[in-house]
């Protein structure tokens, strides 16, 4: 049996992949037994691979090897923090799980200062664009009339959209209300554009899957499909 598998590994792999592909696509008709089988196989395989990565990529090199091969015993300090999470199932000690949770939450909160800067900092300076035409100067290219108009639109959109997201003042002024409404409309255009531009990426994935089914798989039996 094992020899058979080894001798035909390539072919088996392809047949398995075809079965998996069709099995998952079957949910498009409706949820059914075949899909359910592949769904559970999928979750099983994924869990198996996660266990593998956890051991091979994290626990073995960063924990086991460091402590038992290199003798850097202080890495064992990670153990109680990790194990305390399991106390959640004990009625008496479950508060201690919060120590570990607090540790992980604190790390995440501390990293936020950096991601906050990533979300806004560079975006601020790239907004600084002249809104009247200008001649070329130094390393900057000239700003044409249409460029200037585009820059003005750019700023206007930022103002409108940000106004839409203010929560804490009552909108009494008509101008503010109009600005916020414009902001919402602009958002809809922006979302439409994201939708449209994502379609191609998703289609590319589906096409390459079909390419596998028709050309690579079908092609092995019907040569002119290749």
């Amino acid at each position: 049996m094992l020899d058979f598998i080894s001798a035909n590994a390539g072919a088996i792999q392809m047949w398995v992949a075809v079965a998996c592909t069709l099995g998952i696509y079957s949910i498009l008709y409706k949820e059914n037994k075949i899909y359910r089988f592949f769904e559970h196989a999928f979750i099983g395989l994924a869990m198996g691979w996660t266990i593998r990565t956890a051991w091979v990529d994290v626990l073995y090199p960063n924990f086991y090897q460091r402590i038992f091969h290199e003798g850097r015993w202080w890495w064992i300090l990670a153990l109680p923090l990790g194990l305390m999470l399991y106390l959640i199932y004990s009625r008496k000690y479950n508060w201690m799980a919060r120590i570990s949770i607090g540790f992980l939450l604190g790390l995440s909160a501390g990293q936020t200062f950096q991601s906050f800067a990533g979300l806004y900092y560079k975006q601020i300076v790239t907004t600084f664009k002249p809104i009247v035409p200008q001649a070329a100067e130094g390393s900057m290219k000239a700003v044409t009339l249409s460029g200037a108009i585009n820059n003005l639109i750019f700023l206007a959109i930022i103002i409108c959209v940000m106004t839409y997201f203010f929560f804490s003042f009552e909108v009494k002024s008509k101008v503010v209300q109009k600005t916020a409404n414009t902001g919402r409309w602009v958002l809809m255009i922006a979302f439409g554009a994201i939708f449209g531009s994502t379609i191609m990426a998703r289609m590319a994935l589906f096409i390459s899957r079909m390419d596998f089914l028709i050309k690579q798989f079908g092609g092995t039996f019907v040569p002119w499909l290749k």
Binding site: C20, Y25, A41, F42, L45, W49, R202, S208, R209
Partner: peptide
């Protein structure tokens, strides 16, 4: 077989769905 034929095919298909 398990990784390429199974897991990767399943992930690719689920993504393409």
């Amino acid at each position: 077989i398990l990784f390429v034929g199974g897991l990767q095919a399943l992930e690719g298909t689920m993504f393409s769905i």
